[in-house]
Simulated scan of single mutants.
Amino acid sequence: MKKLLLLGATAALFLGACGEESTTEEKTTASTESTEKAPDAKKELMSFYMSIPQAINAVDADLNAFETAQAKETLPEGDDLATMKEAAIASAKEAGTAVDGIEIPETLADHKADIEGAFASIKESYAMKADELAKEASFEAANAKFVEADEVFNKMLKDQGLAPSSILNEVSN
């Protein structure tokens, strides 16, 4: 009787160990699969993230020239200033439109609503800059609106284990 009890206990331990081993194997397999997908997700996120300032920088040179001259207090006067403002307004409007052309990759579908919200903030920022150029050209509120988009993208970067960045800094140079 004691031998049967001992045999039963041994069998239970053996089966328990086998069960733990298969569970460990399943966890390892699942972990390996997610690790294999993670670099692709990171790579896709970085590629997408870098496409945003590239799209904007392709059309915002006149706006950047105005902002740089304003910061250095070297804005021209008279007709030259009016011409510079008109070009900056057109540049701001194009930059807002350029964001519409950026496609959200399928791998980021889970973040689509956040990304679209960030894009809306960027577009609103450029619309605010265009409006300000017709007045005194104070871009503080517009830049604050753009920072909202940066915060959304930085959260996504951090969630993937990547360093935060600033699209606003990338497009303001």
Rank of each mutant, 00 (worst) to 15 (best):
K3T: 14
Q70V: 02
F48P: 04
S22Y: 12
E77H: 03
S121E: 10
V171M: 06
D40K: 12
A118K: 04
K123T: 14
A17N: 06
P164M: 03
Q70H: 07
M50A: 07
K3Y: 10
L157Y: 02
Y49W: 10
A82K: 14
Y49F: 14
D79H: 07
E151L: 12
T83S: 10
F14T: 15
L75M: 10
E106T: 14
E36Q: 06
A82W: 01
Y126G: 09
A69Q: 13
T68H: 07
L5P: 04
A134T: 15
A118W: 04
A142R: 05
L4D: 13
T23I: 14
A55E: 01
T32F: 13
A137H: 03
K2L: 11
I167S: 01
G101S: 03
K37M: 10
I122D: 02
S34D: 04
L133S: 07
K93L: 15
A30N: 03
K3W: 08
E106F: 10
T28F: 08
A12R: 00
M46P: 00
A30F: 01
T68N: 06
S47Y: 12
K155W: 06
H111E: 12
E21Y: 15
D150T: 09
P53M: 07
A113G: 06
V171Y: 04
A141R: 07
N169Y: 13
E170S: 11
E73C: 03
E140N: 12
E73N: 12
K85R: 15
E77V: 12
T83C: 00
F139Q: 09
K85M: 06
T24A: 14
G117V: 09
S172V: 10
N57E: 09
M50T: 10
E116H: 06
A130H: 05
F119A: 05
A92E: 01
L157V: 00
D79Q: 14
S51Y: 00
D80E: 14
K43Y: 14
E106I: 08
T29V: 09
D150A: 09
M84C: 06
A38K: 12
S138E: 13
I52H: 06
M84K: 13
A30M: 03
E33L: 14
N169F: 13
L81Q: 01
P53C: 09
G101K: 06
T68R: 07
K2Y: 03
L6C: 05
H111L: 05
N64D: 14
T97K: 14
E151D: 13
A95L: 05
E25D: 11
A65N: 03
L162R: 01
M1E: 05
A120W: 01
A55I: 02
S22W: 12
L162G: 01
L13Q: 08
Q54L: 08
E21H: 11
Y49M: 06
N64H: 05
S51T: 07
A95V: 07
N64E: 09
K135H: 02
E94S: 15
T97M: 11
D60V: 06
A87G: 04
S22V: 15
A130V: 07
K93H: 05
K93A: 01
S125H: 09
K155P: 05
D40H: 11
N143C: 00
A12Q: 03
L13F: 15
